[in-house]
Amino acid sequence: MNIAPLLEIEQLHAGVAGKEILRGLDLQIYPGEIHALMGPNGSGKSTLSNVLMGHPAYEVTHGTIRFLGRNLLELPPEERARAGLFLAFQYPVAIPGVTVARFMKAAVEAVRGREQVRAAALLHEMRETARWLEMEESFLNRAINEGFSGGEKKRMEIFQMLLLRPRLIVLDETDSGLDVDALKIVARGVHRALGPDTGVLLITHYERILNHIPPHKVHILLEGRIVKSGGPELVAEIERRGYDWLRESAAATS
């Protein structure tokens, strides 16, 4: 097989505030694949998403990340987004006074290139996308995430994902705090964004979202390392047995 991976993580060590959280993480994602990364609280799931996107508070002490063949760690966050990486935030922040429409115009212009964007066509695309996600059109004139409900915030993330057309989508616990209807809309959005060139990394606690977005591969993250990888059957096993049995086997191998 000649296809190059979208994402290649090798021996990644990283942390925040001087504390090492990821301790030798390896992961490869190929185009068209959906990967689920599961793990208990504190296992390093959110650290991985922050490190991937380039949050300045996180420090990589060892290892490499290549995205579409480029050294991701050399790029500032905005360059990563322009290269095709998208992170759906677990806790999207509110930005008072900046409307969704203004924000997305700036973002789409940055990602697609200013000369590629016509204002009227983009506005039409935003309206159509909002409608498709069953959001009120007035949402475009609201300040980013300000006063949004939990479900609205997550839909807002999916809205941005659809407009930015990324190559790799990282969903950081996008399912947490969502009711079933909102979860279905989120899943529908991800399926719409998926294509043969696109990859997904689904970071989650629960199997619930995996029923809507079935993964090809499942990884279990424990104490900063992937301790087990497998197919979708691993999800059911985690539901049944929890993480403790893996903790014991991880301790035995390290």
Binding site: H55, E78, A81, P92, V93, A107, A110
Partner: peptide
Amino acid sequence: FYLRARGIPEAQARRL
């Protein structure tokens, strides 16, 4: 960080 994660360069993000 949120704005930069959407491709908006830092200086423009600060202005926004």
